[in-house]
């Protein structure tokens, strides 16, 4: 028992905010995975006779302007949000990890070149890049993912580079070399595990950002194709009918807020627990 208290999970469970965050995320993941099973209706089936229906036993959260079941669309939207967030963060993270390690280990000129590249990309406002790319590419989740990857991998690259640089000359790495360890062993056994901590924290903190970018782009009409039940698209629809049927807006907005809060809290809790300097003082 006392051993468990000191594991990461044990420490997270002792933090009320982290428990709250994990509960939300679990709810989100389960409902996204089981969306087809739970959903009472086909999310894209239109029932023009039941347009703007109020919440009822048949339509738990009412219907929208085309008579589609809002609750079923909410579940489907979670699936889209998670899919985009996880895919985009994984791709961006992987690119950042590789480039960051290259910058950290490589010769000085490569480091300088990559740094310049990272900083240029990071200086570019996401929304402008999104608008530019949207003009060039077909609407769809693919475009959303590409926008997120381009605007965020530099951030991972920077963090990984800084970590790698400071570890490269650490005494324990010298000690490994002095024992005869190969370059590969040093990278995979000793640098990587120490880089991954801050890397995962950043990734966890980025998940909600990606979810909002997807919602934002869909809201602006440059994200998912029309008809796709993304939360952002639902928000946009809801906006038009906010006076008469506020539940449409709510079914896009509430899950968006909850998901963002959940991932942000988890990211913060992870950071507090994984960063030993923050851990010591409490």
């Amino acid at each position: 028992m006392s051993a468990f208290r000191h594991t990461l999970m044990g420490r997270l469970l002792a933090d009320p905010l982290a428990v709250f965050a994990m509960a939300i995320i679990a709810l989100l993941v389960v409902s996204a995975l089981l969306a087809d099973v739970i959903a009472p209706h086909d999310p894209s089936a239109m029932n023009l006779a039941d347009r703007f229906a109020s919440p009822s036993a048949t339509y738990w959260m009412g219907t929208d302007n085309l008579g589609r079941d809002t609750f079923s669309r909410l579940l489907q939207g979670g699936r889209i949000a998670l899919y985009v967030a996880l895919t985009a963060v994984s791709i961006a993270g992987l690119i950042g990890l590789i480039l960051g390690m290259l910058a950290g280990f490589g010769p000085r000129w490569l480091d300088n070149a990559l740094l310049f590249f990272f900083d240029t990309l990071r200086a570019y406002p996401t929304i402008i890049l999104a608008l530019a790319l949207a003009a060039l590419m077909p609407r769809g989740l693919g475009t959303v993912i590409i926008v997120v990857v381009i605007t965020s991998f530099a951030e991972y690259g920077r963090v990984v580079r800084t970590q790698t640089l400071s570890l490269k000359n650490a005494e324990f790495i010298l000690a490994e070399r002095a024992m005869g360890a190969s370059f590969a062993r040093i990278v995979f056994h000793h640098i990587l595990p120490n880089v991954l901590g801050p890397f995962f924290i950043l990734a966890a903190m980025n998940l909600p950002v990606v979810i909002t970018i997807e919602a934002g782009m869909s809201f602006l009409g440059i994200g998912v194709p029309p008809g796709t039940p993304s939360w952002g698209a639902t928000l946009k629809d809801g906006f038009d009918y906010i006076r008469t049927t506020p539940w449409i807006l709510l079914s896009g907005g509430l899950p968006l807020i909850l998901a963002t809060l959940g991932f942000t809290f988890l990211g913060e809790a992870l950071r507090d627990q994984l960063d030993p300097r923050l851990r010591k003082t409490r």
């Binding site: 650490a170 005494e171 324990f172 010298l174 000690a175 002095a178 024992m179 005869g180 056994h189 000793h190």
Partner: peptide, 16 residues
């Protein structure tokens, strides 16, 4: 290096 062992200055910092 298998036959020449080294101990570094920082006792904790030289351990992974």
């Amino acid at each position: 290096r298998r036959r020449v062992a080294m101990m570094f200055q920082d006792p904790v910092g030289s351990l992974s």
